[in-house]
Design a protein around this nucleic acid. Structure first.
Lengths: 335, 335
DNA sequence: CTGAAAGCGCTAACAC
DNA sequence: GTGTTAGCGCTTTCAG
């Protein structure tokens, strides 16, 4: 920078002004400086600028994983929004490991990011309270279980997602439903389904609730195998609610192998609306979670936090999920 | 830091030594300093450290998109490897936009990252030559088309992936194959298929090559619809090669709707081995691309580059793909 | 083993 | 409009 200044016959300060596009520089001076920059191939040192300004133009995003299409879509959207404002994305994953989460939080908050977005995995909640004391804007998103009330949270009404799935089945006329869910992580979604049936005085019996740990197609496959005898019991189950589309994919695979037709013999409803849901066989009825909208609102709060250089006031934004009816659900067969 | 030093009755230097775990500090002094740190809640400013050391403990990763499971898996693996060494991940996406790519490259290289990993999209290649002049370790990965020979490149033998798919079909006895590919991006994969058939003196006619832009299930669906008349022509096509599993998913959906049985009437082979391939209907035969291994080797070169504070010597590492036979491919029906 | 001094490259105040 | 003066918070010499 000093070299550029000398070559252009000005001071570093003027070079700085030119680089940052300040309007205080006369056109001639600007031209001279720009020429010098080009000749010397000068490029400003962002770290030095950060030290000086106290701002890094970087925000940290802590997510459980990126392999899950739900999160990768959120991350993609956030990255896009940040880029629009010239911000960068420092990405960290916790993989459901509380220790990792804590470490990630610690490093990122040492003034190396301007703000922090944290997507919720239930075990990270605890570590967060000390964080709020820190002078760093923090926004939480995708917080399914017990969103803290000390920070701004943008999440989805997961209970309602379950409720909508349940009501969809009820409206089709289903009375006997099995549940295959990644418990306890998705307990809120299951509660929603139960509520929908309870409204009509129907109880979902505990022995029709099966767990699919990890919420993968594989876990859904295994859970469906375990569930099979119950599904075919005397009082026939006419529908299956899965807490995730991924689980539904595995469940439907079992049904195909076992000759259970979807939706003729049994309906299937998932949650999420992942890209593959539309191309499943049959296309999967699901409850879409507004991930991109969540990303937008969370980022908006981030900007607000950055503007005030502290977290936005505690708040809870609950986004509304929406049923996407497809071919995997239909009225129960009459018998 | 000065406060901590004063409180512990030492200088900043000693505090620094304690923080960085240097062994030059006497146990008593160390204890005093640590107490002061705890009492004051001191946490080192990483930006200042970076300015001083010239190292940010951050590496940049430029990737076309993260929504595609191929890349998200690579990113996830890279992030894990970085975390092991205490490095952070600055993620940028290009979305196939050359301008964005150039901007991303420019910002990231201004000393704000210690090294740069770039996953290949064909239009980014050009921007990269100026970069190599920069004193920044750069490693390229997933470079399907024309890997530059001026930088270290870790990629997959995509031609061989196509070749293996083709040979798999040949070994099953298929002679007449249609190709549905995201061209021109995947032209190398198609060339591989052609080579496999050419070895047996069989030419894949151009009018059996269909393009599925974007390599999504949707694009595969549409391409398959266009291809249908040809597939049912006089000389029957007994197999379809798709340049990507995602395309195959859409193609198989069309076949189901049209009553074409897979693999009895027609075999389908994809490339990639995305998670859904195993749960497709039927499970998809594919050629697995060693993404995680690619991530590992690329990261290894990154470390080497950082150690020498410049890119590793130009090199080309070609990883070997592998056929994963599943139910979507079988010998052609005799007629 | 500890301390004092100099600087990393840039920006924010002020003067001029 | 442009130049001058101080730092931002840390690390790195180099003496002691």
């Amino acid at each position: 920078m000093a070299d550029v200044a000398q070559r252009a016959g000005v001071t570093k300060q003027t070079v700085s002004n030119v680089v940052r596009g300040r309007t205080v520089v006369s056109p001639e001076t600007r031209a001279r400086v720009e020429a010098a920059i080009a000749e010397l191939g000068y490029t400003p040192n962002l770290v030095a600028r950060s030290l000086s300004t106290g701002t890094t133009m970087t925000i940290g995003f802590i997510v459980p994983t990126i392999a899950n299409p739900f999160y990768s879509e959120v991350v993609e959207e956030v990255e896009m929004l940040l880029e629009e404002r010239g911000y960068h994305l420092l990405l960290a994953t916790t993989r459901g490991d509380g220790d990792r989460a804590r470490r990630q939080l610690a490093t990122l908050s040492n003034r190396s990011v301007d703000a922090l977005l944290v997507a919720g995995d239930f075990d990270i909640g605890e570590q967060l309270s000390p964080q709020s004391e820190l002078e760093l804007p923090v926004v939480l998103c995708a917080w399914e279980i017990d969103p803290p009330d000390t920070l701004p949270v943008v999440t989805i009404d997961y209970e309602k997602a379950g409720y909508l799935a349940g009501r969809h089945l009820r409206e089709l006329g289903h009375r006997q439903v099995a549940v295959i869910a990644d418990l306890p992580a998705h307990r809120v979604r299951v509660a929603g389904v139960r509520r929908a049936f309870a409204e009509d005085g129907i109880t979902v019996p505990d022995d029709l609730v099966f767990t699919a740990p990890g919420a993968t197609p594989e876990s859904g496959y295994e859970a469906a195998l375990r569930a099979l005898p119950q599904l075919r019991a005397a009082e026939p189950v006419t529908a299956v609610f899965t807490s995730t589309d991924a689980i539904a994919l595995g469940v439907m695979e079992v049904f195909r192998h076992q000759g259970l037709r979807v939706p003729e013999d049994i309906s299937v409803v998932g949650i999420d609306d992942i890209p593959q849901a539309a191309h499943a066989h049959p296309p999967l009825t699901t409850v879409a979670l507004p991930k991109r909208q969540m990303a937008r609102e969370a980022t908006e709060l981030l900007w607000r936090g950055i503007a005030n250089s502290r977290p936005a006031a505690p708040s809870l934004t609950l986004l509304r999920p929406e049923v996407v009816p497809r071919a995997s659900s239909a009225p129960p067969a009459v018998h």
